[in-house]
Amino acid sequence: MTVDESEAVDAFERLGLTSYEAKVFIALHRLGSGTARDVANVTDVPRSQVYSVAESLEDRGLLEVQQSSPIRYRPVSLDEAQETLRNRFEREQERAFDYVDSVKEEPTTEETQEDIWTVRSRERIDNRVVDLLSQADDRIIFGTRLPEFVTDAIEETIRERAAAGVGVLIISRTEAVRESFEDIDGVVTQTPPARHKDDDRSGRIAVVDDDSLLLSVVDNDGSETAIWSSGSLFADVLIQLLEASDDLESTLG
């Protein structure tokens, strides 16, 4: 089996097929059609196993059986196979998440509300920022020095909340960041004081209303790590400390 075929087999396994099923399916497409002996000759699947594997593939809707002597097998087209596997994946995904949704416990206890969460990876932090911003009713403070931390989704969410009457303050010493929001009604942009040296590890901050906060730093390898809290005493106290500080704008920049 070639390296490329090995990778294909691994991919089929991730889609739910067994190793033997993937190998037989690939072999039949290579052959066009064939008997168990034909398949065994071009794969490492024992001939005795081909019959049961072919039966399983038939049940999955991935091959057809010709009742001849000997029995011959023919794979369905690649388009049909893709559609079959896609539909199966979607059904299994729906079944799995429907079950989790039915048993999940909503975070309603006091202990859960006081939690401080850590989020790692740029994409997950992007998603968390969007989620927090979308819940704003009164105000948003958003700050970063890095234009790449202003994703399209973050910008669009801020636009939507500003249009809904939420007050928005954007603070950054980076002109490109400020320019991203200057055309939005209801959004105020500010440049922090220049007396403080830039911190190469600062990431971004998001303050939502008076009870939600996210702070991130950029690690030495360029990855981002954030902490966030919502509806907690921690978030409330930290927001008050930030607002009371003369260096608030510098911190947000």
Rank of each mutant, 00 (worst) to 15 (best):
D38Q: 02
L78T: 09
V39N: 01
T43L: 11
A81S: 14
L57I: 02
T43S: 12
R47F: 03
R88S: 05
R91T: 13
E90Y: 10
S56Q: 09
S56F: 08
R74L: 11
L63S: 04
L85V: 11
Q82W: 10
R47L: 03
E90N: 06
D79W: 08
E64A: 11
R60C: 06
E92Y: 06
R74H: 09
V39Y: 05
R88N: 05
V50R: 00
Y51H: 11
D59T: 15
S48C: 00
E94C: 08
T84D: 02
R86F: 11
A81R: 11
P70G: 07
E58L: 14
L63M: 06
S56H: 07
A81D: 11
E80P: 03
Q93K: 01
L62D: 03
S48M: 00
R74V: 15
E83Q: 07
Q82L: 11
V50Y: 00
N41G: 07
E64R: 15
Q49P: 02
S56Y: 03
E80I: 08
R60H: 08
R47A: 03
Q49A: 08
E58K: 15
R91P: 05
V65C: 09
E80Q: 15
Q49Y: 04
T43W: 14
V76Q: 08
D79L: 11
L78M: 12
R72I: 10
R88P: 00
P75Y: 04
Y51W: 03
Q82D: 08
E55H: 15
N87D: 14
V45Y: 09
E94S: 13
R86A: 10
E83T: 09
N87C: 14
V76R: 10
E92V: 01
V76D: 07
D59W: 06
S52V: 07
R47T: 05
L62G: 01
L57N: 04
L85K: 06
P46V: 04
T84N: 02
D59L: 09
D59E: 13
R60G: 07
